[in-house]
């Protein structure tokens, strides 16, 4: 079970923008945590500290008890796999299978271990039939799934998904939801950075709301999304379904999880 512990982390970009201000939070798997907040709120900056893509200006990031300082991103990739938003920024192999194998190979798994992880990742994302295809021959949403598979195949305890459903249609969103649940079932700690509040409400057990570089809220979706004042101050709209829970005509508010039993 992976744990990370972020203590008093602040981060300022070279051009002077303070992107994170004194953030302290900890988490352990298995769990699915949603990171929400408007662009510039610090959620992505925060996530990039977990695998050393960014280093704190102040404060400390501990991964499994050890400080991330002094370890390269590639070394930290053993623990934290980070899936970037644009698949075309990473795909460079000639087949889907080779692309998905890149990550586990870098981590030093033996050939059999690589093969097992690749097969499993392809299965989880429904990509097994496309294994021999050239990624560039696939449509964008499938290339996105290939990029996700290549990160999932690294079989790390922590997985960060950076806006995985941008540009996806309803089916694609469903596939990613299933992926997130499968990862949690396998004991992973999943961090889901997303603008899709309904997705966050459906899949996350915990929500971190970022605003102005600070962690403005940390709780279960029902609580975080019910705090309409705090959401509004953070320029975040609650999930569509929450608005069903509090219209003037309805006698009792209902939480998103209870809504599932109606439909």
């Amino acid at each position: 079970m992976a744990a990370f512990d972020v203590a008093g982390v602040s981060f300022t970009y070279p051009n002077g923008t303070a992107a994170l201000r004194d953030v302290t939070v900890a988490a352990a798997g298995p769990a699915v945590i949603g990171l929400i907040g408007r662009n510039g709120s610090g959620k992505t900056t925060f996530a990039r500290h977990l695998n050393g893509l960014l280093r704190p200006s102040r404060g400390r990031v501990l991964l499994d008890g050890a400080d991330t300082a002094g370890r390269t991103t590639a070394a930290l990739a053993r623990t934290v796999a980070y899936a970037f938003q644009n698949p075309d920024n990473q795909i460079f192999h000639r087949t889907v299978g080779e692309e998905v194998a890149f990550g586990p190979r870098n981590l030093g798994y033996p050939a059999s271990g690589v093969e097992a992880r690749v097969a499993e990742a392809l299965e989880m994302l429904g990509l097994a039939p496309l294994r021999q295809q050239h990624p560039r021959d696939l449509v964008f949403s499938h290339r996105k799934l290939v990029a996700l598979a290549s990160v999932v195949a690294m079989d790390t305890p922590v997985v960060v998904l950076d806006e995985p459903t941008t540009g996806q249609d309803w089916e694609g969103v469903g596939r990613i939801e299933r992926l997130v649940r499968d990862l949690a079932v396998r004991g992973k700690l999943v961090l889901l950075i997303t603008h899709d509040m309904d997705l966050a409400a459906r899949t996350c057990g915990r929500i971190w709301l970022f605003a102005d570089g600070r962690l403005a809220a940390d709780g279960v979706p029902a609580d975080v999304f019910a705090d309409t004042a705090r959401l509004a101050a953070a320029w975040v709209e609650p999930p569509e379904i929450m608005r069903l829970a509090a219209p003037p005509a309805s006698p009792r508010p209902r939480s998103p999880s209870r809504r599932r039993s109606i439909a």
């Binding site: 249609d169 309803w170 089916e171 694609g172 969103v173 309904d198 569509e240 379904i241 608005r243 069903l244 809504r259 109606i262 439909a263």
Partner: peptide, 17 residues
Amino acid sequence: PADGVALPAPTAVARGL
């Protein structure tokens, strides 16, 4: 449901009903 188009929440609820 398998057509790749998301339904607004009120519509989905009403269809369920």
